[in-house]
Design a protein around this nucleic acid. Structure first.
Lengths: 219, 219
DNA sequence: CTTTATAGTATATAAATTTACACTATAAAG
DNA sequence: CTTTATAGTGTAAATTTATATACTATAAAG
């Protein structure tokens, strides 16, 4: 069922509910809406009933504050695609998806993060300051990037398993691969890197730089 | 003020409010809570008042359903730092921060995203499939990466302003900079790239590849 | 052994909130 | 020119909801 467009007045009511909800955490009463919009509660009620019919919200009669907004714009971030020439880039119908972290980085609950240090994964386009999302429950496949502990030292490398050995390859010719036996006790896969996020604005970069001295990163 | 921990019963009430909110979009009444928990409204009220004192929620007396949950547990992801040799990497005291998207990518509300296409920003370590976070309200500074529309075509480049001209430089020697006049009407800065996220697990990469044919990316 | 915090029952009252009903008015559609 | 959808006013009644008050009970702390 498509979302029918709201009239000007209905939009005003809808907006008020939205703002009220954000401010208070619960919806307004008919009275509260009526006061702000300077109309009668009965009139507000009529608007709500109409909007409910249009599927813009749910209105439960007999229930105080019984309003639920639908089409909650997700906390998400709209993602624009490329549009045909001449078509405005930032138009509603050029939104190809909505970004929600939970959906994008879908992994087990005990997902964790590490910051990258150094240039050993340069050719995989990972650089100092990048934040990696690591899934500790996922079994690594050959070619995937993993966080491993070698003799207690965490390190980021590409994973290749062959017979009884595991090879951890850096992505930079300057460094050499590490080869360990699968039964080696001084070695442990901490998790598989399933995502990465990088801050690019200057203020954030400064913060990261400051952090750098306080906390370590994993190379 | 630290969040004092809830007693077992308080947690039950809290959880019920949370579930009710998710199911209905508005908080429950004392009566509704009392019915489900099989206690009296007065008892529920007492719990709410206590929890409000503990800052677990806001409770507005005299207001029907006047409950707002606070401390929405952030969808946060723990970030581990590098620990002294021998110290277990994934220990509680090695958590240097918690990742929350809204804090990490702090920008104006109308933040949007675009997927990268092509290799024109290769040397800035951006590759096809990366998702960029773009702030349309931020004024670009020299050297920052921006999304611009040149003759209607969106493009990702590094921004340099000098006198009356703006230079949009790719980060790949294969491509040439674009130079436009500041007053050029066929040119518009759509926003400044303030962050990037990349999916690295295979399943996600496949999804992106499938998407690729349906929707476009911005080069 | 007394205080304090938590957890409850039970009931009447007060206040908040929704609702029904009777009307008016305007603009667009058929 | 009549119907339909929207947008209201105003009021009393019905219902929902919160609150005050008086008690009981348990466990932990001092």
């Amino acid at each position: 069922m498509p979302i029918q467009s709201l009239t000007e007045r209905q939009q005003k009511v809808y907006d008020f509910v939205k703002e009220f909800l954000e401010a208070h955490g619960y919806p307004p009463t008919l009275q509260e809406m009526a006061n702000t919009l300077k109309i009668q509660p009965s009139a507000v009620r009529a608007h709500l009933l109409l909007m409910a019919k249009k599927n813009a919200l749910r209105y439960v009669p007999h229930i105080s504050r019984g309003i639920e907004l639908l089409q909650e714009r997700p906390v998400g971030i709209p993602i624009y695609g490329s549009a045909p020439a001449g078509h405005p880039f930032m138009a509603q119908d050029n939104i190809v998806d909505t970004f929600e972290l939970r959906r994008y980085i879908s992994a087990s609950d005990d997902l964790f993060g590490v910051y990258v240090r150094g240039d050993s994964m340069k050719d995989a386009q990972l650089s100092t300051g990048d934040l990696l999302f690591v899934d500790p429950k996922k079994d690594p496949r050959n070619g995937e990037i993993v966080v491993a502990a070698v003799e207690g030292e965490p390190t980021i490398k590409r994973y290749y398993k062959e017979d009884g050995t595991i090879e951890l390859r850096p992505e930079n010719k300057k460094y050499k691969p590490i080869v360990v036996n699968t039964w080696d006790e001084n070695f442990k896969i901490l998790g598989v890197v399933i995502g990465m996020i990088r801050a690019l604005d200057k203020k954030k970069l400064d913060t990261i730089a400051a952090d750098y001295q306080t906390h370590g990163r994993v190379s």
